[in-house]
Simulated assay, not measured.
Amino acid sequence: MNDIAILPAPTTPEAFYAFLDKLGIAHKTRTHAPVFTVAESVSLRDEIPGAHTKNLFVKDKKDRYFVLTVEENATVDLKAVHKVIGASGRVSFGRPEKMMEYLGVAPGSVTVFGAINDRAGNVTFVLDEDLMKHELINGHPLSNDATTSVSRDDLLRFLEATGHTPLVLKVTD
């Protein structure tokens, strides 16, 4: 049994940090006022180094779910991205109920770190190639009132430890 299977769902930020610690993943978290959009989080750039992310929770016509993690100011063509990620037909945004069920987060808090709650492997995680050029990557630690920084390589290790093999693809314009 893997370590993630014993965590209660949805995982709390504290349990998420403990999971990172157990994996030996260095991380730094800064708490701040809740931010729901990239525009609201701009003021944090000077305080938190590294690449800041935008995460899109989408589904295809066969109800396969994906989290697309890209740099905060990147553009994703939702009419064409299905060709890159291997989705069945065009993608649309996933419903908030599925976001909570699969990732354990509410709208405005979508994060690559939600993989810790997707124990059944319902979601494919896609990391943009341009994002992965950065050494330090930031995301919400399961709530939008904090930002957690990890290294690019440790982000990949985290995803693998949750049972997800991420796709690293060019999904931005």
Rank of each mutant, 00 (worst) to 15 (best):
I116H: 01
E129C: 12
G94D: 11
G94P: 05
L167E: 05
A161K: 06
L56N: 06
T172F: 00
S151L: 13
F125M: 09
A33V: 15
V112P: 01
H164D: 08
P13D: 01
L20E: 05
L159G: 01
H134R: 06
E71I: 00
A9P: 08
H82Q: 11
V70S: 04
V42E: 14
H52K: 00
N55W: 02
A115W: 02
I25P: 03
D3Y: 12
V112K: 02
F57C: 00
K79G: 09
L7I: 06
L136I: 14
I48T: 06
G86P: 10
L159R: 05
H82A: 09
K59L: 09
Y65M: 04
F93E: 13
V38A: 06
K59W: 08
V123W: 01
I48M: 09
V35Y: 03
N117Q: 08
F36V: 09
R45E: 12
N2S: 13
A15F: 09
A18G: 07
E72Y: 11
K22F: 03
K133T: 15
K28Q: 13
M100A: 15
P107D: 08
I116V: 15
A26H: 08
T31F: 11
L44E: 09
V42P: 00
G89N: 09
S109N: 07
I4V: 14
V150D: 02
S109W: 02
L44P: 03
N138K: 04
V168P: 02
D46T: 14
L103F: 07
K22P: 07
D118G: 05
H32C: 07
H134M: 05
L142N: 02
L155E: 05
S143V: 12
T75D: 09
D77P: 07
T37C: 09
N144I: 06
G86E: 13
K59A: 10
T162K: 05
F113H: 03
D77L: 12
V84G: 02
M1C: 07
A15G: 11
T111H: 07
M99N: 06
D60M: 14
L56P: 02
E47L: 13
T162F: 02
L159M: 11
A51W: 00
S143A: 14
S151Q: 10
